[in-house]
């Protein structure tokens, strides 16, 4: 059946409209997927364990470099414990480790490797303790003269 000019024009218009609608739907789906991927990526990186490991290790080393024997410290480490918990670190006792033999402090906020930073004074760190919910999670430790220097 041969269509009149008007009928075929209308039909082309309808086809054009539905094709445009299909294109829009495809673009919207691509955009939604893009947003979802970006939100996931940014959310993942916002909890950047490597950066915070580096931060805490260096700040702790700075505190020890400035310390004198007998000084006691109490540091808010709530953020570190939150990140470690999110990353499923097995125990809070693994987060902050003071190695007196090497004079360095290691911070671990993910199950993988830890970041270690050495300090430049001959002091030992003793009595380290993580106080939970007091009201925030706090790291306590004391520095003393180096013991058993080689």
């Amino acid at each position: 059946m041969k269509l009149s000019y008007t009928d075929s024009a209308l039909l082309r218009g309808k086809r054009g409209a539905s094709e445009r609608l299909n294109d829009e739907v495809v673009f919207l789906i691509i955009f939604a997927v893009f947003i979802a991927v970006m939100v996931f990526y940014v959310g993942n990186r916002a909890n950047n364990a490597a950066f915070w490991e580096d931060f805490y290790a260096k700040e702790l080393a700075k505190m020890i470099n400035l310390a004198k024997p007998g000084d006691e410290f109490r540091l808010d480490v709530h953020k570190a414990t939150e990140i470690a918990q999110k990353n499923k670190v097995k125990s809070f006792s693994e987060i902050f480790v003071f190695d007196n033999a090497k004079s360095e402090v290691c911070v671990k906020l993910s199950p993988g490797s830890a970041k270690c930073y050495s300090y430049f004074v001959k002091l030992d760190v003793v009595d380290e303790e993580l106080e939970l919910a007091a009201p925030k999670n706090m790291l306590k430790f004391k520095v003393i003269e180096k013991v058993n220097e080689k």
Binding site: E53, C106, S113, K115, C116
Partner: peptide
Amino acid sequence: NHNSRERPA
């Protein structure tokens, strides 16, 4: 030029 080192798991 001191930087932190990675301690492997």
